[in-house]
Structures are given as structure tokens and as C-alpha cells.
């Protein structure tokens, strides 16, 4: 890893990273891909986020669904842990609560494959500031 030695360099890196990330969710972009984020803060892990994370990683690969499974911090729906967020290219992200491996299977089969919304969707109830 090389050190960033100026603000310009930092901005350049930011732009390329941002572009790459955004490209995942662009419909018809060659890089577009299903994104699954698993909330893995203490609460999430305590209620079983780790096996859910592993399950998505293994199963999506097994079922030949090109996807990126990543961990993230607290989504703040503590009451509904484990929570995950699924982004299908071209669609708004969807948050699911109380996800166990059975639920994960349902999400893969019904939402990711067929685009049907199963139960357990948590409506997003906040706005997030965009930093610039």
C-alpha cells in the first residue's frame, strides 16, 4: 500500500473507489453484482450474524449467483438482529430483520432470484447525511 501524500491524490483515490462501488449497483454495468451486507456489530454477532454471513458467502457461490457479501456495522435495528441489507443492481437496497439461515435461504430463492419480497422487510426510517 502506498501512502497518500496529497489532498489531490486522496480525492483521486476517493473518486475511483466511489465509481467502483457505485458500478456494482448499476443495472447493465459489467461490474454489477448482488450486494449483501450483514450487520456485524456486537448485537448482530451475538444474535447469530456470523453463521448468516458464512451462509450467504457459501450458498451464493454454490448457487452460482455472482455476489459480494460484506460485513458492516450496526444498522441500528437492534430489536431485529441479525439484520442484513440486500442490493440488487438497479433497485433500492432492502433491509431484512431476524435473519437466520432458513430466512437467508428464502431471501436468496425468493428475493435475489425472483425479485419477490418475502416477510421481514424493515422499512428504512432514517435519512443519512451525504458528507459533501
Amino acid at each position: 500500500m502506498t501512502k497518500i501524500t496529497s489532498l489531490t491524490e486522496l480525492k483521486k483515490l476517493r473518486d475511483s473507489l466511489k465509481e467502483k462501488m457505485e458500478s456494482y449497483s448499476l443495472l447493465d454495468h459489467p461490474d454489477s453484482i448482488i450486494q449483501v451486507k450483514v450487520a456485524m456489530a456486537t448485537c448482530g454477532q451475538a444474535s447469530g450474524a456470523r453463521p448468516v454471513f458464512d451462509y450467504f458467502k457459501e450458498e451464493l457461490e454454490k448457487r452460482n449467483i455472482p455476489a459480494m457479501v460484506t460485513q458492516t456495522g450496526c444498522m441500528s435495528y437492534c430489536y431485529a438482529e441479525p439484520t442484513i441489507e440486500v442490493t440488487i443492481p438497479g433497485k433500492n437496497p432492502v433491509v431484512f430483520g431476524f435473519v437466520n439461515t432458513r430466512k437467508a435461504d428464502e431471501i436468496i430463492e425468493r428475493y435475489i432470484r425472483k425479485g419477490e419480497l418475502p416477510d421481514g422487510v424493515i422499512p428504512v426510517n432514517y435519512e443519512t447525511v451525504i458528507s459533501q
Binding site: 448485537c43 451475538a46 437492534c78
Partner: peptide, 19 residues
């Protein structure tokens, strides 16, 4: 408080958290 209040009541056995 282990800060996992969403899972209250919480019990820890070693490092493992039960909610």
C-alpha cells in the same frame, strides 16, 4: 451493560453472548 441492549436480557459465558 455490554451494550447489546437490543437483546436484553443478556448473559455472557466467556466471550459468548446470549441474548
Amino acid at each position: 451493560c455490554v451494550g447489546a441492549c437490543g437483546l436484553a436480557p443478556v448473559v455472557m459465558v466467556g466471550e459468548k453472548v446470549y441474548g
